[in-house]
Design a protein around this nucleic acid. Structure first.
Lengths: 150, 150
DNA sequence: GTTGGTGCAAAGGATTTGCATGTTC
DNA sequence: GAACATGCAAATCCTTTGCACCAAC
């Protein structure tokens, strides 16, 4: 039950800790995985495989796209990463695996995390007799009211 | 401005009405569009382009996949169809364009519509000063409590 | 015959697969 | 050297683009 009120930087893994972060999840450290993990867990963002590849390359590490995908999938399987289905064009990966929801700015395309909103769902009409609610994904669509110039 | 107050089964378009349904949305009828519209609007489902192609082919109409995609996009643009981003593998199209949300059965993969839930969102913490909530997408993840055998 | 609309083959892009290579015992 | 783990080229699959064809005037 690791839940912070101010989640911000707790999720961020310091570079020197990445090796043990991987090993604590039963993942062998390799050059490629370290580079990918560093890009992924250093900042709290929603990144595509393409984004990760760019960052890794900027750090001077040579990795193939296939490896980026396979590694991100591995991280998801190990519970270190969460897959986010918002953008129909690509899968995004979220290093925040705690319970939370998302804000999508439909103008800028920006996606941000928000703390779990305390919603008590009213009785859901269409629920089958044998179905139990496991959780819910919520995406708030927002627009800019004014030009963000001031 | 064609909009019904009680949308439920009104969305289902009878085959003989499909032509005028299209023309009322300023869409010319063609063999391909009629076939696609028939498959899409006859039943209330969430269908992928692939699904539509299968149905159209079953009805003995020859249409290319590109045309299926382009036609579905056209229908979305005209407000006849809604794009649903839930499945990371493919885009789904929902013939229910009224305000509503979705149930995803994580075991079966089934997606169903539910009526708009009357949620009053508490003040959202991470909202920017210039951002206004336009709406929200809600996906309830459900599981089967018992085997659905009885 | 020119203009605009329509359908689709081919291109493009995201993701996965299968295999070659490296590592461990 | 057998068994397993790892990385990536090539394959696959979803979706879009660009252009050929057709109809209306």
């Amino acid at each position: 039950m690791v839940q912070n009120d101010d989640i911000p930087n707790q999720m961020l893994v310091q570079p020197e800790n990445i090796k043990e972060f991987l090993s604590s999840h039963n993942i062998n450290s390799t050059r490629q995985r370290l580079a990918i993990a560093e890009s992924m867990f250093r900042t709290q963002q929603h990144l595509s495989a393409e984004n990760i590849l760019e960052q890794v390359n900027l750090n001077g590490v040579q990795v193939s796209k296939a490896t980026v995908y396979n590694t991100l999938r591995l991280f998801v399987k190990k519970g270190m990463l969460r897959e986010v289905v918002i953008d129909p064009l690509r899968t995004l990966f979220d290093s925040n695996v705690s319970d939370h929801h998302h804000i999508l700015n439909v103008q800028t395309g920006e996606i941000r995390d928000i703390d779990p909103i305390n919603i008590n769902l009213p009785p859901v009409p269409g629920l089958g007799p044998n179905e139990k609610i496991e959780g819910f994904d919520l995406v708030l669509r927002v627009t800019n009211t004014t030009s963000p110039s001031d």
